[in-house]
Amino acid sequence: MIHGIIAIYFREMLILRRRLTRQIPSWSISPFLYLTAFSYAVGHGVEIEGHTYMEFLIPGLIAMSSMTQAFAIASEINIARFYWHIFEEFQASPISKVSYVGGEVLAGMTRAMLSILVIMALGFLFGVRLNYGLAFFIALLLNSFVFASLAVALAMVVKSHADQSMLNSFIITPMAFLGGTFFPIDRLPSWAGAFLNLLPLTHASKAIRAACLNQPVSIFSYVLLFAIGVLFFSVAVRCVEKAKD
């Protein structure tokens, strides 16, 4: 099983390495714009729970970016599947479905972690000092695990590359704005807050923010993210089997 995971992961990393010089600026541009626009223009003088808006925003951006970059592995899979037909090479090889999903999920998580390093560096340049300890990295890993697994599952279900962008519009974009990234969800009406608490990104934002701001962390959020990740991972394995025809 390990050989298969390494093969899939190694391939994705080789491709990423080739694109890294283009990828780093693309990972930087959105966080830079958010930090400039929301923090200086909109959030100037705003204080949330005793922290500046910048201190509140950066953990949210980290949660959001880890989600979008982990989920972006779906596009890579779709290009490999529909455009380059490389998915057939994996299907014909003697690796298990778990190996395939494992390799792709790890690749998605790696992309997420690398994109976070860019945001951490930007935050540092903007003069924000946060606590990036163990709890922070565990929350980050769990969040990227959840969305990379979801990405693999959905990449197996979609019928074309065009469907993929539709999923981004319906799943990722709403979650990015409503998952506690830019504002505290307890300021919303209780029914909206209750709904948003069902989203994995809300728990990831909470956990990452608490860890960054040295606040008490909620174990429930960690357990929930892990459980959702395992669920999505097993669905992804099933979806790989169903992608046979």
Binding site: H3, I6, F10, L14, W84, I86, S93, P94
Partner: peptide, 20 residues
């Protein structure tokens, strides 16, 4: 169905890994 961005050697290495 080759990885166009990768080299000839890299394509073959990945295949070798897939086949243990």
């Amino acid at each position: 169905n080759l990885d166009q961005e990768l080299t000839v050697q890299e394509n073959l290495i990945i295949h070798g890994w897939l086949y243990r």
